[in-house]
Amino acid sequence: MFLTVDTNDRRPVYQQIADGIKALIARGQLAEGMALPSVRQVAGDLGVNLNTVAAAYRELQDEQLIAIKPGSGAVVASRTAVRKPEELETSLRTALLNLVLSGVSPAHIRTLVAQQLRELGNPPKGVER
């Protein structure tokens, strides 16, 4: 199971790490209770700052996707992130707005959304709120 960080991606590295782990959790590749590597291991393997990886893990912990136990590392805690409904709507609206402003037709947006959902495969229960 791999996490990819692209040097050409405009998102900060910590965001790419957090998003990558979220995607693996959403696809079910990282199941509940599975151990994640330590912050030191990920930082060392990627050749990035410790704080960069720690920030990504902190974000995942804030959303209650992972649980960090001092001394024993991080484990996947849940497949459903704890986020406010307004926050989710804002994220969706921003994404849709960017697509519309880029000149993508509503039909194509629907296709893209369906494709992304298909790629996620088996979404966890409780996502539809």
Partner: peptide, 11 residues
């Protein structure tokens, strides 16, 4: 390719 990967298996 411009990306780098990291394994998520703890060592």
């Amino acid at each position: 390719a411009s990306g780098v990967a990291v394994s998520l298996s703890p060592r």
